[in-house]
Design a protein around this nucleic acid. Structure first.
Lengths: 340, 340
DNA sequence: TTGTATGCGTTATCAC
DNA sequence: GTGATAACGCATACAA
């Protein structure tokens, strides 16, 4: 009886050994009520056979697949940090996280959404980056909870975990102003993204409150989040008349690009030019003696994402959308000094 | 007929609309040969219904879970790069990659393996880090192909994708010697790991060939791969009599720690001290004007891992184990100069 | 090359 | 509570 040679045991084998029906075993596996005696004998049988449930088979009958789609723009330090926390949160609860990077390519994004659809994910977690718009139609016929993080897309009835970009940027730029800077430039990100817009907005507000005028790079490379945008932008900045004594970089890639450009221009940080990066990274303490940065916790953001996702999955009743806004902090290192 | 209201379409609906049998649709999905006319009508039906295959259902018949377990020590840039490539390779083939980070904690590692077992993964890809040994017994009763990468564990009959640590280290240290250095120190990694041992070995060989003597840090923090090991180790190095003019760091975290320590000691890179990092990272060009690094391609490593994994999965016949050894290259930046 | 029928391991729906 | 059994969506012998 049962335990056919070399085959993985099924609930049938377990039921056989435990002397109950498959229905009871299934109910056991799903944590439902059953007679104590049966519960024990099933547990023993599972242990003895070292049985583990075939989730594929379960999923084809169940509405819930146990999959969580996680769409990230790239595997960089921040998004990877969020991924890690999400995996850590979901795994013990029996969910499987499917990470997918679209690499800023619209076609990949569409593929990701189709992939999630095919896998029947229970929820999608996504950074609402540019290009997302274009593929939104796919989402319509997927019909699962969507949690947006980092970048916002307005007008969608979804949960959001965002960063207080405007406020934190304003705070950071004000810090530079308090240090005595009056010529402060900004390296913006891709202005299609809400984060880029809000960080710019915070910068603007800080400047306005001190009656300073904006300096932004006329970036030959166009706006964007990558190192070379920061590099080209910074080079551009110092071609003009009004040379900045401080640079506010909208993310750490841009800051890195600025560091490279300043080095070429033989301008020292922080003696000649001060710099702040929006977004911290593990290596920032080691770049030019330490880059001062606006720091936010991927872990905390990930945790809130999971809270939202889990509650949406377990309780489908349409509550109005919720938003959590994370407050970053300024980590002061050695890249900001008083201007000469 | 068919297309039951509100339900996701199945091959049955597709077959119906295309005027063929479900068998043909299934075969179409699996890329088998079929009459051109049928192929086209099926494609049209799929398009029209925006059908996508239910992989869970497919996998249950195939007797495979479609899961690939990926065990990484941490979500750092290198391992994440490998993960990305693996996801990119496996996803279009219908597999789902389950990433799991053990964070150098033995208990997590055991949990990971149990997790993989419960999910019935078709293969496990793992960096053979310390601690792996202790949990090996679990592997015995999982019985799926294992592909080791980065760190090797000897005596196992598995496929391996490794880096030529010894050769590349030797090459890097020789480069320092050619630049005129005679006092070259090493910051080793955790000497339980094959990579740490082999990088040390390469260093030793380079030194021996020039009849130089070794300088290694008596690290109060113990050996390890993390920034603080590099930091403490470097501080230690400059307490002694025989102060090195060059440092070979066994990974980039150690290099970062060294940079920090040297800064505190007010020693300039590369004027006072030269440094090479084994392992490149996106930010290394921006640390102290550019850190020279031994560079290996996560993408290429990932690709070979997938080749091995896929062939093991599809062809279970026990071939002898294969090994691919990746040859890194030295990326010269500005952290090595001739000693004064 | 194509259609038919059976089976995969699990959950859900019934009666009991 | 529990047991029998019909789905679930797909792959795959087997037959045609």
């Amino acid at each position: 009886m049962s335990n056919r040679k070399n085959k993985a045991p099924t609930i049938l084998d377990v039921a056989d050994l435990a002397g109950v029906s498959v229905g009871s075993v299934s109910r056991y596996l799903n944590g439902e009520q059953l007679r104590k005696k049966n519960r024990e004998s099933i547990a023993a049988a599972i242990e003895k056979l070292s049985y583990s449930r075939n989730t594929s088979a379960a999923n084809i009958r169940r509405k819930s697949s146990g999959f969580i789609g996680f769409l990230l723009p790239s595997f960089d330090e921040f998004h990877t940090g969020v991924l890690e926390e999400i995996v850590n949160q979901f795994t013990p609860k029996g969910y499987v996280v499917l990470p997918f990077s679209h690499g800023d390519q619209g076609s990949f994004l569409k593929g990701a959404l189709e992939y999630f659809k095919a896998q029947k994910v229970d929820a999608i977690i996504a950074s609402g980056d540019l290009g997302f718009f274009k593929s939104m139609d796919i989402l319509q016929d997927i019909d699962v909870p969507l949690i947006l993080y980092s970048n916002d897309i307005q007008g969608m009835n979804v949960d959001r975990v965002l960063i207080d970009d405007r406020k934190a940027s304003k705070h950071a730029v004000k810090y530079m102003i308090e240090m005595g800077h009056t010529n402060i430039a900004i390296l913006t990100g891709d202005l299609n993204d809400s984060t880029a817009i809000d960080r710019k907005r915070g910068y603007d507000e800080a400047l306005a409150s001190a009656e300073l005028t904006e300096i932004s790079a006329h970036n030959a490379a166009g706006n964007g989040w990558h190192t070379h945008h920061g590099y080209i932008g910074t080079l551009d900045l110092y071609k003009g008349e009004n040379k900045p004594t401080a640079i506010f970089a909208s993310n750490y890639f841009l800051a890195l690009g600025a560091v490279q450009a300043l080095e070429e221009l033989n301008l020292k940080i922080p003696n000649d030019v001060s710099i702040i990066s929006f977004g911290d990274a593990s290596f920032l303490p080691f770049v030019t003696g330490g880059i001062t940065a606006v720091s936010f916790s991927a872990k905390e953001i990930g945790r809130h994402i999971c809270d939202f996702a889990l509650s949406r999955i377990t309780d489908q009743s349409a509550k109005s959308s919720r938003t959590y806004i994370h407050q970053p902090s300024l980590v002061v290192r050695n890249s900001v000094s008083r201007p000469k």
